[in-house]
Design a protein around this nucleic acid. Structure first.
Length: 475
DNA sequence: TACCCGGAAGCCCT
DNA sequence: TAGGGCTTCCGGGT
């Protein structure tokens, strides 16, 4: 049973647009460690030895570790080795950008840098918090710094940096503390940074058995989860999700609440349970699934649209059913409940604040020709995924799909109503590392998308049955 | 009027 | 610098 933290103070909307229920742009662990005298937003936290580290960073590093490149991460680690006289760090374990590194839990860091994890973790948290403090003090900027220029002038300069990327399993434990939660909410309310997604690079999550285990337990939920999780409208569904979450999570896995739910403020959480949210679980549920560990995969540094939609659809807490919801999870059919709201979320995600449904739907239509998506004819705002996330994640280059689509005369049927679940088959093999994963509680085995189940008479068609799980109750 | 479609051009990122 | 993945705009159809 998840613990529901104490009620958080309302998040002031201010002059800025409504915000997503974002996680805190800082480490609650730090708040827990340094809570004294840090009772208001404008105040600086008490000085900490760690705080001085910021000024000692190599000048080539941006103040916000979330904007660091891979090289910057290496630079930082080298610096940390010298600065703290810690054991040599295996840089191969940190082939990631700063954003990804900030997503690592204390445990993760400890595993990657034995004996130094705590130090690295604490320094990172300090840097992130300082970066957020600095940002808060500047004139309202809707954009999170993501380059070496901390506060870009142009709103189109870069997608925002995730806010919850420092919220990890271990540090979020502090949210069980009401005081911390209150401070956290206050800080959250004052954060200008907006993003929905941690967009963790998968390379940031390699090598973590903990993550790996959880990934195995959850990866299927993205598309082929058990039926009980289908709509999220049934309380028992949430219970099932909760059970699975609890099973997959290590003890003391934290949860925390957001006082706000919807960006459009049009629909509050349907139940208090839906306000429970663990960014780390979110990351583990979906991040690994959508960002394969193969380092050769392009790092989009943010989710793709299909990924974004999948994550909303498969949000364990079902907090986005006001915007988008499965109509039939098994067949991948979903409905955009609130087109404008969803487009707004997407716009925030991509830092295109003028995004609307017309534009977003154009992006969706581009998925037609690569058979990622199709329109459900006759139903407004209804679309169907033609490929499951496991398959999509293995598509290194979606343009390859387009090329193969053009070579397949049967592929030009995205709008066909007669063969809604037939798509040309693309030879996309799961990555060996995945298929070799042991103890796959939920075997991410191929569904009817797989070649093996293809009608032998037509190797170019497969049935799209996205879930091997039993039928579910639909709304 | 809203939704839907797809071409075209351009932007931003890797 | 090229390519990917959109974003933006648009005209047209339902």
């Amino acid at each position: 049973m998840k613990l529901v933290p104490g009620p958080l103070p309302p998040i002031p909307t201010g002059a800025t647009m409504d915000r997503l229920p974002l996680p805190m742009p800082f480490s609650p662990d730090l708040l827990w460690r340094y809570p004294l005298g840090f009772s208001s937003i404008g105040q600086q936290p008490p000085s900490s030895p760690l705080l001085d580290y910021k000024s000692q960073l190599p000048t080539s590093l941006a103040s916000d570790p979330r904007v660091w490149s891979r090289d910057d991460v290496i630079t930082f680690l080298r610096w940390a080795e010298r600065e703290f006289d810690i054991q040599p760090i295996d840089m191969d374990m940190f082939q990631m950008n700063g954003k990804a590194m900030c997503l690592l839990t204390r445990t993760d860091l400890g595993e990657r840098a034995p004996g130094s994890g705590d130090v690295l973790y604490n320094v990172l948290q300090i840097l992130v918090r300082e970066a957020n403090n600095l940002q808060r003090m500047l004139p309202s900027s809707p954009v999170t710094p993501t380059s070496r220029h901390p506060y870009p002038i142009s709103p189109h300069s870069h997608p925002p940096t995730p806010n919850w990327n420092v919220l990890t399993q271990s540090n979020a434990e502090s949210f069980q503390n009401p005081h911390t939660a209150t401070l956290a909410a206050q800080l959250l309310a004052h954060s200008n940074s907006v993003t929905l997604s941690p967009a963790p690079s998968m390379d940031s999550q390699n090598g973590s058995p903990q993550h790996s285990d959880n990934h195995q337990s959850f990866s299927h939920t993205a598309f082929s989860t058990t039926g009980s999780n289908g709509s999220g409208s049934n309380p028992s569904d949430s219970d099932e999700e909760e059970k699975k979450w609890n099973q997959a999570s290590p003890p003391n896995t934290p949860t925390f609440s957001f006082s706000n739910h919807s960006i459009s403020s049009s629909a509050p959480p349907r139940s208090p349970k839906e306000t429970n949210f663990s960014p780390d679980s979110y990351i583990r549920n979906f991040g690994r699934d959508f960002f394969p560990s193969d380092s050769t995969e392009p790092n989009t540094n943010g989710r793709l649209l299909w990924d974004f939609l999948q994550q909303l659809l498969n949000d364990p807490a079902q907090r986005y059913t006001n915007h988008i919801a499965w109509k039939n999870r098994e067949t991948g059919v979903f409905k955009i409940v609130d087109p404008a709201g969803l487009a707004k979320l997407w716009g925030i995600q991509k830092n295109h604040l003028s995004m609307n449904y017309d534009k977003m739907s154009r992006a969706l239509r581009y998925y037609y020709r690569v058979n990622i998506l199709r329109k459900v004819q006759g139903e407004r705002h209804c679309y169907q995924f033609l490929r499951n996330p496991t398959e999509l994640k293995n598509i290194k280059n979606i343009s390859l799909l387009r090329q193969q689509m053009t070579m397949s005369p049967t592929s030009k049927t995205p709008s066909s109503q007669t063969a809604p679940q037939i798509v040309p088959q693309i030879s996309i093999k799961p990555e060996p590392t995945e298929s070799q994963e042991p103890n796959m509680e939920y075997d991410d085995k191929p569904t009817d998308l797989s070649m093996e189940k293809t009608n032998s008479s037509s190797s170019r068609h497969v049935n799209i049955v996205c879930s091997p799980d039993p039928p579910i109750q639909q709304n």
